[in-house]
Design a protein around this nucleic acid. Structure first.
Lengths: 201, 201, 201, 201
DNA sequence: AATGAATGAGTTTTCATTCAT
DNA sequence: CATGAATGAAAACTCATTCAT
């Protein structure tokens, strides 16, 4: 009677084999959590998330025994998505542009998503990061590497400081709340700093 | 018969004329609050602050009728301090260096002080900021102006994006927690982006 | 699988379909609240009510998100009860007696119940009263109308002043605390004032 | 150096011999308390009273060691005033009218003064009433006695029920908030009940 | 004697987490 | 498994009362 689903995950670590409805609930909770946390930050109440997901609060806690675990799960989910996008960009044509496009796009998303910022903050710390977050980090490394080979990014900069800048601008973007113009000018400075001196002169 | 103290302020707006002991307590509360908020962020409990300040909780609420008002007061206090430091730097010798010194120093402080970050976040938003925060903003403007006249900063960058970067790097610094090396490399990129292209080539 | 109870209400507005235990708790809270408020007035603490009801304080606030809402709920509950009693009296035999019986009985209850008094006070004010309180007001109107048709109450008195007197004597009764004799003499005066002059002479 | 004042009291029990300024403060506190309690009921904060009186809160507590004692003091003060007015009415011309005038006037005052109501409530209870309140009670007795001798009030009614009615109508008047018309009709019923049957027919 | 700052117990309210249904 | 009711430990805030100035 229990229709098991082989787990496609793509949304956090747990879930080995799950009843179909449980799987469905898990997804809905994650989606709701992402929306709510994105809007109100991590202090949003679990109850609200349950409501938005259309499940009882008990169900939320069955899937994620702790609020913190829920937070981690959605970070991972976002990480997976971002990593995918990043890999897609890396696979595309122009290596010189790809990295800057990624950077810009990420900051734009962050302007509306507290979650992305927190996520990136985690990716910046090399300790105890879950696999999906590491995957993101690696995808970025690839992107940067190609950009450097293409001469679009100075060869002496390394990934950690790029992540730091990415996080920083994302967070600043959050606070400056959607001022596309200002965002562009801020990015321009960072990009100027990343490009080889020759490329600017 | 009530020995009054003329109030030196430099630490928040209120307090016209205050009994000496009240003044003392107010200061201790602000210090405690700064420490605690710096360590745990604004969700730290008022009770803890009272304890650290060595006063009853009622005393905290007598001085700051709302948690938010306490938060604002310490933001202002930090702003006053930062603004003073900034002005001092501006008055000093080399305009070409002063701005970069300020930027670096502020980021270093932020690495340990959540408060500074939140404060700067406020300074970045031009809406309804208290006077001390505005004062800080203006002090930065002066500093940047001088650096531009000295040819140390590109003349087309404006203060808002500089504030955005400052906030961003401060916040990133908070998350990367005390990695002086990484911090230096991150700043190097930003500074490279700020300097005129000619200066680099 | 959640045995629902169709709700008989008669005790406040909310609660569409409720789990049996929740229904039980709701009732117990209302009873406790009525007792406690009756004894100590509306400044009694919610905690005490929770204790008397044998539930955690959280449960009280789950059912009544505000102290005020609890207060309103019990007023409504009492109103419902009073209105029912009043209608029952109106349906009974002698219209000439029914009204006076109602008046006397209500005052007797009030002698022990602060709540009833406050409730009646509400019924006396024609502004924004909840439905149950209005229902009570209407039930009284019927009762008075019949008494007037039976010639037991002067035809020129109207309901508002009767409510005012009812409230007044109830409140006085509260303060004079259980002096049945004095209560009777007080009511005698009011009743004499309500009866047609002819009936007295 | 201490200019003592022989105490004219008229405002509560304490105060044997007092420095002139202390006496002044005491009076101002009582006045402020009466205003504030009248407006907000006994739950008004002592701090507010101190402020309105223009004294420090410590001063209030020096004069009235307990909030309750302050409450009692102002009740007494009002009682003294009422008793005086009552005696004045008794001394005047028409005994048949005096009592009804007193009743009406008192109710009118009560419509705006919570204090008067609470005071009268106390007067209704024969236990442990302070002297001034007793004085009021006696003044009313005189008034009623004269009205009865003049045949304006039934000879079988006694003071306690009259006090009960007075309290009741006062309180109702408080709740019905200043509806002069309704107040008049309510009083009419009570007065009809108090007058001898013959007088009505 | 006056002042007003300090105190801390008490009150309302929220929310993560558990558990009976 | 799902549900949502129950729980109770905080947390913010109030206020009568005390006490140093």
């Amino acid at each position: 009677m229990d229709q098991r689903v082989p787990e496609q995950d793509a949304s956090g670590e747990p879930a080995r084999t799950m009843r179909a409805d449980a799987q469905r609930n898990r997804t809905r909770i994650l989606e709701a959590a992402e929306t709510v946390f994105a809007a109100k930050g991590p202090s949003a109440s679990t109850e609200e998330i349950a409501q938005k997901a259309g499940v009882g609060i008990g169900t939320v806690f069955r899937h994620f025994p702790t609020k913190e675990s829920l937070l981690k799960a959605i970070m991972n989910a976002v990480a997976v998505r971002l990593a995918e996008e990043t890999r897609a960009l890396a696979a595309q044509g122009d290596p010189a542009t790809a990295f800057f496009t990624f950077f810009t796009r990420t900051v734009e998303q962050a302007a509306e998503q507290k979650t992305v910022v927190d996520l990136l903050a985690q990716a910046g710390i090399p300790v105890t990061v879950a696999k999906p977050v590491l995957a993101l980090r690696e995808a970025v490394e690839v992107l940067v590497g190609k950009a450097q080979q293409a001469g679009a990014v100075r060869s002496d900069v390394r990934v950690p400081e790029i992540m730091a800048l990415l996080i920083g601008v994302c967070q600043a973007s959050l606070h400056t709340r959607l001022e596309p113009d200002l965002r562009a000018r801020t990015l321009a400075i960072v990009f100027a700093g990343l490009r080889p001196a020759a490329a600017t002169g």
